[in-house]
């Protein structure tokens, strides 16, 4: 507790929502790069979270992700976002191959009263960094995506959310009998984000 007091930082709901949605933007880019959904040369390196991060330069993907994070931060601020899932599907068969699951727990009290919490940026960044490292290393155990793939993002929201014009209801795009690997989580003291990747069981493994 003593060390925490030394680096006391105030975090607001809005700030927390910004951190989480930004995190998701970088995480999505990192997944698309590391899983080679888009060609390697369409990414450019930037420094973020104390790590070299890769961001897509493809205008279509870029605007998709920026629209997404804008909407996510809106929902995060209202505390109505429960989960974000990035789904990787086969381009040809639309079979779901991977689901990157980001569960979000919101401190309801902060949303209702507008209170703020204390946690240093540095600490949050360290937690996010750990997740990013895990995403990058995930290629070592995830099965190879040896066919052209596409991705989609699902947002699990509370039912009382008004569906924006640009969004539609979707099925959960679940994987049958998935393998799951739990990754690190991070916590802004307002939003807690748990990461889990589930993927199609490698048939080769079972044989």
């Amino acid at each position: 507790m003593a060390s925490k007091a030394a680096t006391k930082d105030i975090i607001t709901l809005r700030g927390s929502a910004a951190i989480v949605s930004e995190f998701f933007g970088y995480a999505a880019n990192s997944i698309l790069y590391n899983r080679a959904v888009y060609p390697e040369e369409s990414f450019a390196k930037v420094k973020k979270y104390g790590l070299p991060m890769l961001l897509t330069q493809d205008e279509g993907v870029k605007s998709f992700i920026s629209n997404l994070t804008a909407q996510l931060s809106e929902w995060l601020e209202s505390g109505k976002l429960q989960r974000i899932v990035l789904v990787i599907m086969s381009k040809v068969t639309s079979e779901v191959l991977e689901r990157w699951n980001f569960s979000i727990e919101t401190d309801k009290e902060v949303v209702e009263t507008g209170a703020s919490r204390e946690k240093s940026d540095k600490e949050i960044m360290r937690e996010i960094q750990a997740i990013m490292r895990q995403i990058a290393t995930s290629i070592s155990y995830l099965p190879c995506l040896d066919e052209p793939c596409v991705f989609d993002v699902l947002a699990y929201t509370d039912t009382d959310v008004a569906v924006p014009f640009t969004w539609i209801e979707s099925d959960p795009k679940l994987i049958k009998y998935p393998q799951m690997v739990k990754l690190h989580s991070f916590d802004t003291k307002i939003h807690k984000v748990d990461t889990l990747v589930s993927y199609k069981n490698d048939e080769w493994d079972e044989a």
Partner: peptide, 18 residues
């Protein structure tokens, strides 16, 4: 009833040239 699952109406561009 717990949740509403939403996705963008416009899907991200697929990596065609790949």
């Amino acid at each position: 009833n717990r949740t509403r699952i939403l996705s963008f109406r416009n899907k991200p561009p697929s990596p065609a040239e790949q």
